[in-house]
């Protein structure tokens, strides 16, 4: 793919901003790693060879009988009995961390939450689950949630702002008043009430938070459209008989993207933070989900186990900082007036 001159300039500008560039590399690297969390932290082996046949327990559930055991249920590979069965006539490869986010370590030497040791690198939480495994899965769910929410609220916000700004007049007036009313709602309380009424799941939480996150982009996009709808190139397009929809999409949208991009870092970090705070209050993802907010709540409830709170704090702050620096870099790269030396 060949880049046009302006995009090449942007890429160079972005690379010149070393803080943003490296933040992006780390953020994306961490997210990509966490996408393969099942290969890194799991309570099932990746590959098992038993009687010269290959099994992939992390993908497929095999009954214990497949390995010469007694039960028809799925094999519990952490059971020493099963491990012995397999090792007698084959071998197995385990992930780096032998715990999934739900796995409870029953062999703790001290009562849960237990401090970090060679077995549980970041210790366990108050239910005996491995903290590192939960952080890896929690990172994935937080970032995915944030990115998806950002994409959807941008689409809705940009569309609403575009319509308001382009048509102006009464459309704009009525929309603005509705937005003001909507913005005046105590969103956190409504979320809490709704979360109590409906069983929250990933998608339902996404929809609930979307209700309140889309208006943040409307203002900037509306202002940008209001400003540029009277530019000569828009007038020229109207004089050619171009339809409104095409003018908005082809002429105005690309020119208002820079100001919309300015807001994206705040929406992304804001989305992650709102999910975390709902989880912290116990109103977020269903119980048992790997969630950073829940880890924070545990840290608060177990001050004698500082590794919980410290881990959650460091994970969140590093993730949010990287995300912010990255997007700040992207935004500056799109700014034609910014020069980097």
């Amino acid at each position: 793919m060949t880049l046009s001159a302006i995009n090449r300039r942007r890429l160079n500008n972005f690379k010149a901003n070393r803080r943003g560039y490296w933040s992006m590399i780390f953020f994306v690297l961490l997210f990509v790693i966490s996408l393969f969390a099942e290969l890194i932290a799991n309570d099932k082996p990746l590959v098992v060879s038993y009687q010269d046949q290959l099994y992939f327990p992390f993908l497929i559930a095999y009954p214990e009988t497949a390995f010469g055991g007694d039960f028809e249920t799925e094999a519990d590979y952490r059971d020493p009995f099963v491990a012995d069965l397999i090792n007698e006539d084959g071998w197995q490869i385990w992930p780096l961390i032998r715990y999934s986010y739900t796995t409870i370590n029953y062999d703790l030497t001290s009562p849960a939450p237990s401090p970090p040791d060679a077995e549980n690198w970041l210790g366990t939480d108050d239910q005996g689950r491995d903290v590192l495994a939960r952080v890896i899965y929690g990172y994935r769910i937080s970032v995915a949630f944030g990115v998806i929410l950002t994409i959807f609220s941008s689409i809705i916000g940009v569309t609403a702002g575009a319509v308001q700004g382009y048509f102006g007049g009464w459309t704009d007036l009525i929309f603005q008043r509705l937005l003001e009313i909507w913005g005046g709602m105590p969103s956190l309380y409504i979320l809490i009430i709704l979360a109590a009424l409906i069983e929250p799941s990933f998608l339902i939480l996404l929809a609930l938070l979307l209700l309140f996150s889309w208006p943040s982009l409307v203002g900037v996009v509306r202002a940008e459209f209001l400003r540029s709808r009277n530019f000569d190139y828009v007038r020229a397009a109207r004089a050619l008989g171009v339809r409104d929809r095409v003018i908005m999409f082809k002429h105005l949208l690309p020119n208002s993207m820079v100001s919309a991009l300015t807001f994206l870092p705040f929406i992304l970090t804001g989305s992650i933070v709102s999910l975390t705070s709902l989880d912290f209050l116990g109103l977020g993802l269903p119980p048992g989900s790997p969630s950073l907010g829940e880890l924070l709540a545990q840290g608060k409830a177990n001050l004698q186990a500082p590794w919980l709170g410290i881990t959650a704090f460091l994970t969140l702050s590093i993730m949010l900082t990287l995300a912010f620096f990255m997007q700040e870099g992207i935004r500056d790269a799109f700014d034609p007036r910014k020069t980097f030396q």
Partner: peptide, 8 residues
């Protein structure tokens, strides 16, 4: 300068 869309 303003009558040509800068991004097309």
């Amino acid at each position: 300068y303003s009558s040509l869309s800068p991004r097309l």
